[in-house]
Design a protein around this nucleic acid. Structure first.
Lengths: 163, 163
DNA sequence: CCTAAGTAGTTGAACTCTCAGCGATTGAGA
DNA sequence: TCTCAATCGCTGAGAGTTCAACTACTTAGG
């Protein structure tokens, strides 16, 4: 923390608050839609999606955690719940006996297929319907720039980085 | 839910996933930064901010809930915790005896002033440093469009709205 | 080999958020 | 005035996330 902070100017402040508000309104709605219509948090829905796209609908727990931007711990709890619901099954890993696989069951696939339309329609009506072509394009550029920026930089400032 | 869903095309799919990822990376980091350096979730930080900007640093619970995009219930729990920490104080409301005020204490203001620089710097380095002037401008337009879109439309689709 | 360090995944406790339901108060209409 | 609906805020239970600690296994180095 430097001695004097470089505060956000009025423009930045307005951008930041608008973004914060938009983001919260949007994701709160999507979260509610999924919870209400599918009984699933978005994070759990995403786990089903990742598994459905994997070869044999199976992924190592760590790959699943990485691809769904989840911590190992969070994933463990989540898969435990999904397994109890019968949508995911755990399988032992022969090559590395520390590891385990998560596999999407047929019931899990059915659950996903039943939940997807409602979710996609919510994304369309809540997000895409608000944006014209230019804005959609800009949103993608901004998001990809952000992903690059945040993937390259470590989660905490590194020593000697100007701290 | 209509009979056949209008799925996202490749462009939209890519935009959506990039946005989802960017949003998660960004807000996870900001959340962690605040939790680590201030011991506060972002939602609680925001409550302190709203109070600090209010006349007499005081707001009715419902106004505070609305301005921080929080449910009444969430706010009650949050203010209970902030009150236990000594950063907020509840006061009775004379005109409407159902209601109550939340007031930022001097300790709460000090807490906010101590936490703000680190948070602002995180916002700058994680968000603004990744975006050029055009992108920043576009992000504001997109966010404001989204806020309008989502504030005008009800949380659930209304009957006869095509659903 | 044998040890030490690293990795995979799980667990339990603490915390936050949601949801439904509650008591208290207010306000509108008969 | 009386009643009934609406509003204000709180509460407890349930669910998801985080964090630190832990077991089990693997890998690297002597």
């Amino acid at each position: 923390m430097t001695a004097d902070t470089q505060w956000l100017d009025d423009d930045e402040q307005r951008t930041w608050r608008a973004f914060l508000t938009a983001q919260r309104l949007l994701f709160d709605r999507l979260e509610r839609q999924l919870q209400r219509d599918a009984g699933l948090p978005h994070a759990y829905y995403e786990i089903l999606v990742r598994l459905s796209e994997a070869p044999d609908r199976t992924l190592r727990m760590s790959q699943l955690a990485d691809s769904s931007l989840s911590s190992r711990s969070r994933l463990s709890h989540a898969v435990a719940r999904l397994e109890a619901s019968g949508w995911v099954r755990r399988r032992a890993c022969a090559e590395d006996r520390r590891g385990s696989f998560a596999e999407l069951t047929p019931e899990g696939l059915a659950k996903l297929e039943a939940s997807a339309p409602g979710h996609v329609e919510a994304v369309r009506s809540d997000l895409f319907d608000a944006l014209d072509r230019n804005h959609q394009h800009a949103l993608r550029e901004i998001s990809e720039a952000l992903v690059n920026h945040l993937s390259d930089s470590p989660p905490w400032p590194v020593d000697g980085d100007g701290e």
